[in-house]
Simulated scan of single mutants.
Amino acid sequence: MQNALFVGVSSQAALQRQLDVIANNMANVSTTGFKSRDTRFQEYLMPVASADSFTGSDRRVSYVIDQGTVLNLSQGAIEQTGNPLNVAIRGEAFLAVQTPQGERYTRNGALEINAQGQIVTSDGNPVLGEGGPIAINAQETGLTIGADGTVSTNFGVRGKLRLVTFANPQRLTSEGGNLYASIAAPRPAGLEARLEPGALERSNVRPVVEMTRLMDLNRTYATVSSMITRLDDLRGTAIRRLADVA
């Protein structure tokens, strides 16, 4: 009976983690370039007793363990904006940006020019080119960004946005603000990754799917909670009856 309670609690902890992931996905339905995450769990089998005094083998007790989350890198919808500072990334690549915490990576292609003339993300982080941040003078006009990331104005080529990829993008860690960090060094993106100027990649979160998952999760949580309550009542009844016999 005690094992059943522990199994129920492990299930509830896993469901709580899944709820947090779904809530974060739903909160970023409108976030440019956001990539959803999904939870992964694994089964843990409690070691069974092996004493010879048992008449039969013990039943295996199966717990739920949080194995982490998986980054969904599927392409989000591309929306044309006509803004020359907007770029949508096609393929599994990221823009490199400079933050106070060091180099980070994003799919957010809603770019701007700050007061210093640097090309930055909508959060103000300088976007890195192959030679560092790219700056545009106030006198320059006709800014364009090519599919290969080349930034040009009436003064000519001003730099090239640095597109990077990773050997194992599942190891990227989310840091908030639509930024990712990586312990492994990035590598230049190949020809399969390119930019679509004048467009933005929308979030790849599918609200209907997430809402369905949320409803299933709520039902499962209620079922597990009811089971734990019944087991607790059964244990209390057993204790009272044993006390009456004594």
Rank of each mutant, 00 (worst) to 15 (best):
A4F: 06
L5V: 12
F6E: 08
G8K: 00
L19H: 11
M26D: 07
V29C: 01
S30Q: 14
F34V: 10
Q42N: 10
Q42I: 12
L45S: 09
M46T: 09
S50K: 07
A51V: 09
F54Q: 09
T55C: 03
G56R: 15
G56S: 15
R59F: 08
R60W: 05
V61F: 06
S62L: 15
Y63D: 03
V70S: 00
N72A: 14
Q75W: 01
E79P: 04
E79F: 09
T81Y: 15
T81F: 14
G82S: 06
P84L: 12
A96N: 01
V97K: 02
T99Q: 09
P100G: 10
R104A: 13
Y105L: 10
T106M: 06
R107W: 07
N108Y: 01
A110R: 12
A115I: 03
I119N: 02
E130Q: 14
G131Y: 04
G132Y: 04
P133Y: 00
E140I: 04
E140L: 10
G142C: 01
L143E: 05
I145C: 06
G146Q: 10
G149S: 07
T150F: 02
S152T: 09
S152G: 03
T153N: 04
R158G: 05
L163T: 04
F166W: 09
S174H: 08
G176W: 10
L179M: 11
I183Y: 03
I183H: 00
A185K: 08
P186E: 05
G190M: 11
L191Y: 11
R194K: 02
E201N: 12
S203P: 06
V205A: 12
V205L: 11
V209M: 11
T212N: 14
N218I: 14
R219F: 08
T220M: 13
T223C: 00
S225E: 08
I228E: 02
L234F: 10
I239W: 02
R241S: 14
V245T: 07
A246Q: 10
